[in-house]
Simulated assay, not measured.
Amino acid sequence: MADVARLAGVSSQTVSRVSNGFPGVNEETRSQVLAAMQELGYRPNSAARALKRGEFRTIGVITFTLATTGNVRTLEAIATSAAEEGYAVTLLPVAVPTQDEVRGAFTRLGELAVDAIIVIMEVHLLDNATISLPPHVKVVVADSDAGDRYTVVDTDQAGGARLAVEHLLSLGHRTVWHLAGPDDSFAAQRRTDAWRAALAQAGREIPEVVRGDWSAESGYRAGRALAARTDCTAVFAANDQMALGLLRALHEAGRRVPEDVSVIGFDDIPESGSFLPPLTTVHQDFAQVGRLCVDGVLRQMSLSPPERGTTLVPTRLVVRESTGPAPGA
Rank of each mutant, 00 (worst) to 15 (best):
S215M: 11
S185W: 11
L66G: 00
T29R: 05
P305Q: 03
T323V: 08
S19Q: 04
L168P: 10
E217N: 12
S302H: 06
D156R: 06
A2C: 13
G296W: 07
D115R: 05
S19C: 01
V261W: 01
R316Q: 14
L244H: 05
H136Q: 14
A202E: 12
R291A: 15
A105M: 02
P277E: 08
G24C: 02
G147A: 07
A129M: 05
C232M: 01
G219I: 11
S274W: 15
A188F: 11
A67L: 09
N45A: 04
R53D: 05
D156F: 10
E252C: 02
F22L: 15
T130Q: 15
G328K: 03
A67D: 06
Y87T: 03
L40G: 11
A161D: 14
L292E: 12
S46H: 12
V89A: 04
A197I: 06
M37Q: 15
G110A: 15
E85C: 14
V153Q: 05
R224N: 03
I269R: 07
S12P: 11
A105N: 02
P278T: 14
E205F: 15
A88Q: 13
R320F: 08
V18A: 01
E27R: 09
S218V: 10
E101G: 14
G254H: 14
Y42N: 07
